[in-house]
Amino acid sequence: MSPPQGARRFPWKAALYIAGLAVVGVLFASGFDYYRTPLGERAHHEGYWSWKAGGRVGHKLGIAGSSMMLLMLLYSVRKRVGALRRAGALSRWLDVHIFFGVFGPLLVVLHSGFKVQGLVALSFWSMVVVASSGVLGRYLYLQIPRTRAGEALALAELESQDRDLTERLRAGFGLGDAELGRIDALVAMPARTGLVAGFGHMLVGHLRLRAALAGFARGCRGVPRPLYREFERVVQQKALARRRILLWDRMHELFHYWHVMHKPFALVMYLFMAVHVAVAVMTGYAWGSRL
């Protein structure tokens, strides 16, 4: 049952991120004195037996962080296993994937005590790359219009959406061809833009476009004051749809390449994390060990 129209939904996602950041902040503040101690002197720090990687707190941070990163794999499983197609919207799984992808590495960073060396460093830096690429991937993901369930829209569907928005501006707010042409001009890009140049254009244009559209909206004098907010939002959606149509090919190609980078690093991370955990367990740092 969907919430009633107009009622504000509790921002669960924001709340979880705020709570997670608070926990990480408290942990970082608690271990700050230990973290800022030079490596050669940490063994003599009073917080050594708590905050070192195998310490009372550090060990649990490692377990929690690595557990989160293992849970991230549920998103891949959900995406690939057909039997799980009904197990919630894919976008929700992605939210979970991203949440664990943010806080798992942060906890692992605290677990490491900012001391990265040895074999586990590969896992660590892989994690950094994977997490960083996840941020990029999330951006690219947003550039590809999707259904509510998270399925990507086809180009035709996107063009149909553009047409609807054009008609709404024309009929609802009285925009003529000239004004609509100006919106198209704001999002236009060179016809033969390369993959990387197009991505850069998109990033830069994304920032410029918001200001340009705001200026355009202010220039349209005929829009009634009460409808101005709606007008401005529709103009933005129109411009975004238009740019997505223009970048549709490139975004799909870019997203493909992103996967090629994201997954191997994730694999390396998991591989060496597994080795690290195995060594830790073998040397007496299993769950419940007397540390």
Binding site: V279, M282, T283, G284, A286, S289
Partner: peptide, 13 residues
């Protein structure tokens, strides 16, 4: 030689 000092059950025993 990890296990020369480490014990899977007790750590550095």
């Amino acid at each position: 030689q990890c296990l020369a000092c480490h014990d899977p059950g007790e750590g550095v025993a």
